[in-house]
């Protein structure tokens, strides 16, 4: 076990993937000498050379489309999209080619492409640097979408993504890049089932489902609620396509209550999918309507307003109060449990 930051754990996972399989190539803007704007590819070009770790011209469609061609030739490209909000020029290549090529050719062409996307807010950035576009991709058949929340998962899951024969969108919680934790590099790609959620904290009263940057926030909420006598079970979804509903279902049948949270806007989001699926599968077990705590249906606001936009500890606890039938911001403070 080694102490690593989340970003360092991805770096180490990439190093393993490059060393394990010479068909793995990295492609992205500023990932070479600079080591990426977040240093996630730090020193990898030095170690593996400019063919394995390629600085790409500044064109996201170009990066993704070139990766498709490399995949045709048997390579396993790992693309870095520098920031979440920069992915849209590559959107067509992702949803029209990367996602559909396997289906189009009935599996004759394999598309083992990993697309790394630093995502989410909370770093005081300018426009287009704090977005959460994961739902677009989870809505697209043919893609897998995963997101890590801690250094160990970051390490194992990036290796899992690269080893996977399907295309994977790997969403990295950029404000947690400096989160530290113990990482075992023994835990490689095959030590985790693809698409499995994780019970991050056990509890009995409320299931709180989160992923990526909000998992630590959910853990804080669970600790705070415990002081108030409420036992929260935190589920780290880890995979957004597919979503591991069997883990979620098991938890909700125990707790009878669901709160789901993400930074992305609410409408048509992952939270809507989780709430709908839980309602379909656990209706008879539910004690309260599922609650969503999400970013608003606005563009990501300027940095000075992002605290108002981002789900935080208090907004999570307010939703917990709501599903517990306690006084909350919607009932007003007159109502009682």
């Amino acid at each position: 076990m080694t102490q690593m930051t989340l970003g360092g754990a991805i770096n180490s996972g990439l190093r393993h993937a490059l060393a394990d399989d010479d068909k793995v190539v990295l492609l992205g803007e500023d990932i070479g000498k600079l080591g990426g704007v977040f240093r996630v590819t730090d020193k990898l070009q030095e170690e593996f050379g400019p063919r394995r770790v390629m600085d790409a011209p500044l064109a996201e469609a170009g990066i993704i489309g070139t990766a498709v061609g490399l995949a045709f030739r048997g390579y396993r490209p790992v693309c870095e999209i520098q920031f979440d909000g920069f992915i849209y020029p590559g959107f067509d290549q992702i949803v029209a080619q990367v996602a559909k090529l396997h289906y189009r050719t009935r599996g004759k062409v394999k598309v083992p492409i990993t697309i790394r996307v630093p995502f989410g807010g909370g770093i005081g950035a300018v426009e287009h640097h704090s977005e959460s576009p994961e739902a677009y991709f989870a809505h697209t058949a043919g893609l897998r979408v995963i997101s890590c929340s801690n250094p160990q998962d970051a390490h194992t899951m990036i290796r899992q993504a690269i080893a996977c024969d399907d295309p994977v969108l790997f969403f990295e919680p950029k404000r947690r890049y400096w989160l530290k934790g113990e990482v075992s590099e023994e835990l490689g790609a095959d030590t985790l089932p693809m698409g499995s959620a994780r019970v991050a904290r056990e509890g009995t009263d409320v299931t709180l489902a989160a992923y990526g940057p909000l998992v630590p926030t959910a853990m804080d909420a669970a600790a705070a609620a415990a002081d108030d006598g409420i036992s929260i079970e935190v589920i780290d979804l880890r995979s957004l396509s597919p979503i591991d509903f069997s883990t979620v279902e098991k938890s909700v049948r125990k707790t009878g209550r669901l709160v789901v949270t993400h930074e992305a806007a609410q409408s048509g989001g992952i939270g809507a999918e989780v709430a709908a699926a839980v309602t379909e599968r656990c209706f008879d077990w539910l004690e309260a309507a599922p609650a969503r705590v999400t970013g608003f249906d606005t563009p990501y606001p300027p940095a000075a307003l992002e605290e108002a936009f981002l789900p935080d500890l208090d907004r999570l606890l307010d939703a917990v109060d709501r599903v517990m039938g306690r006084r909350n911001s919607l009932t007003g403070w007159k109502a009682t449990a």
């Binding site: 993704i64 489309g65 498709v68 061609g69 045709f72 030739r73 390579y75 067509d92 029209a96 080619q97």
Partner: peptide, 18 residues
């Protein structure tokens, strides 16, 4: 999708070089 394949050709060609 019009023109998408030109990038695929470029990536494939790069793979040939590799």
């Amino acid at each position: 999708i019009i023109g998408a394949q030109t990038l695929h050709a470029t990536g494939y060609a790069l793979g040939c070089t590799y």
